[in-house]
């Protein structure tokens, strides 16, 4: 069979065709398969201690990414719904809400996350659960504004050009219009796209913040309770050497073999991170193209 035809046929119901012809699904599959491949590869070439450290770092990073997605979607939803149904009826609440949002979006995300480390260092118990949840909360807070803007933008679109006012004027409850008609029936692809982007950004920012803190000024302040993330692994001296070794490849392309076996710890941590980011980018792009989401 010609591959080109396989990629182009839309009306065939076969799952494989569907996955191949849709960029978002293609990359989702590639992401999962790639991840499995890394795990198997690393299980073979890394020593047991390093492998379990790497695996747990990936798990912890993704777990935080997922929690951050769930929490930030909830925050954004609460903000948008509150604005629409509650705050707009009260001047002071309204002003307070906008000032809060103003602050949230005027502090760069990485700064919010670094500030979030303060209580972890100085005030919290070393319980991994509390620390993980707190970190997810901080991450989510830094993305809450994006979700809020997405949702209120969707509401505005259906208000200006759409069914929102038509339904409202027929006496249909606003909460139903927003939750069911605007969000569930009309915004799912937008929110899924947002979730993919937030997941990737969370992974990226978390890794960077952990890297900064681990490599930075006060190594004595490492978080004793929290499992390491990809960022912590990248900041270790071994990983650093592994990554420095990439340069050898420019002089001797065959050095690639060494990179993928002896220098595996740093390389695989770095690659897992970059691979996640690229996959998320492509999945999001595919989704935007396929569902024709507005830029």
């Amino acid at each position: 069979m010609r591959i080109k035809t396989a990629l182009n046929i839309n009306n065939s119901k076969s799952l494989l065709n569907k996955v191949l012809s849709r960029k978002d699904l293609r990359w989702s599959a590639l992401f999962v398969l790639g991840l499995l491949f890394f795990i198997i590869w690393n299980a073979i070439f890394l020593n047991d201690a390093a492998f379990s450290k790497w695996l747990s770092a990936i798990a912890q990073t993704y777990l935080l990414g997922l929690l951050s997605v769930i929490l930030s979607l909830s925050f954004g939803w609460i903000f948008a719904l509150g604005e629409e149904l509650l705050f707009s009826e009260n001047k002071f609440l309204n002003a307070g809400f906008y000032l809060f949002i103003d602050l949230l979006k005027s502090i760069p995300q990485i700064v919010i996350i670094l500030l979030g480390y303060i209580p972890l260092f100085f005030y919290f118990d070393n319980s991994p659960l509390v620390q993980t949840l707190w970190l997810a909360f901080v991450l989510a807070l830094s993305f809450a504004n994006d979700v809020y803007e997405e949702i209120s933008n969707r509401i505005a679109v259906s208000k200006n050009y759409g069914f929102y006012n038509a339904m409202l004027a027929l006496g249909i409850k606003e909460s139903r219009i927003i939750n069911r008609d605007v969000l569930l029936l009309n915004s799912a692809p937008y929110l899924i796209n947002r979730a993919v982007v937030i997941f990737a950004s969370s992974v990226f920012l978390l890794t960077s913040a952990d890297f900064i803190v681990s490599v930075g000024l006060a190594p004595q302040l490492t978080l004793s309770g929290l499992p390491a993330t990809l960022g912590n692994i990248l900041a270790t001296a071994t990983s650093k050497e592994d990554i420095l070794a990439i340069r050898e490849i420019f002089a001797d392309p065959l050095y690639l073999k060494e990179l993928l076996t002896t220098h595996l710890q740093g390389i695989s941590a770095a690659f897992a991170l970059v691979f996640t980011l690229i996959s998320a980018y492509e999945i999001s792009n595919g989704l935007v193209e396929r569902k024709k989401l507005n830029a």
Partner: peptide, 26 residues
Amino acid sequence: LAIAFQHADEALNQNATVREIFEALE
């Protein structure tokens, strides 16, 4: 008061089913 706006494309939720359109009414 109730209204049917002039462009049905805009007045109706395109992604809803006919059943959902009428179910929403109380």
